[in-house]
């Protein structure tokens, strides 16, 4: 799909919707750049991994210089960070970049942290969005992130250690 085609579709959708979510392919290929061109806001979704954070930094650069808003000297695209597949346990062991690390490196405001969770694959397998799984920490974290995007103040969950369960305490794990 070319840029003018995307523009036509977006203009049509604007007639009926307040928000249009445009998912972009991972990486920085043509598709991603077409998807971001017309953005008013962008949710930079990244894993705490070197390659993922690196691509995110490039995309942030492209949003700032090659998006429609940048080319027309308008207000810059409103950029947010969504950190996914986060494992507090691995962060504490020093095996994973922390949310503070990623925030510092990319220096954009944090929208949410999605914990690594088995429920995500289950949701994907069954085709039922993970936000409908009320038991799922990832689902709850996504709901929080959406609420924050819409202007609500919600505390970050899953970035602080949870209370030790008796079983884990027995095993000596945090």
């Amino acid at each position: 799909m070319k840029r003018d085609g995307v523009e036509r579709v977006l203009n049509e959708l604007k007639e009926s919707f307040d928000y249009i979510v445009c998912d972009s392919p991972a990486g920085i290929e043509h598709g991603a750049i077409t998807a971001l061109y017309f953005a008013d806001s962008a949710i930079i979704t990244t894993n705490p991994e070197v390659s993922s954070v690196r691509d995110s930094d490039r995309i942030i650069g492209i949003l700032a210089s090659k998006s429609r808003r940048a080319e027309h000297n308008m207000e810059p695209v409103d950029v947010h960070l969504l950190l996914t597949r986060y494992s507090l346990e691995r962060v504490k062991k020093g095996e994973m970049l922390s949310v503070e690390d990623v925030k510092e490196i990319l220096s954009i405001p944090l929208l949410g942290v999605i914990p690594e969770s088995e429920s995500v694959l289950r949701a994907s397998n069954t085709g039922i969005p993970v936000v409908f799984d009320e038991e799922s920490p990832a689902g709850r974290a996504y709901v929080d992130a959406v609420a924050r995007f819409l202007g609500e103040q919600r505390e970050m969950r899953f970035v602080q250690p949870e209370r030790r369960s008796f079983f884990r305490a027995l095993l000596g794990r945090a």
Binding site: V50, V91, M96, L97, D101, I105
Partner: peptide, 10 residues
């Protein structure tokens, strides 16, 4: 600590 290495590499 591989997280520190990751941060430095980035």
């Amino acid at each position: 600590n591989s997280a520190v290495i990751a941060r430095d590499r980035l």
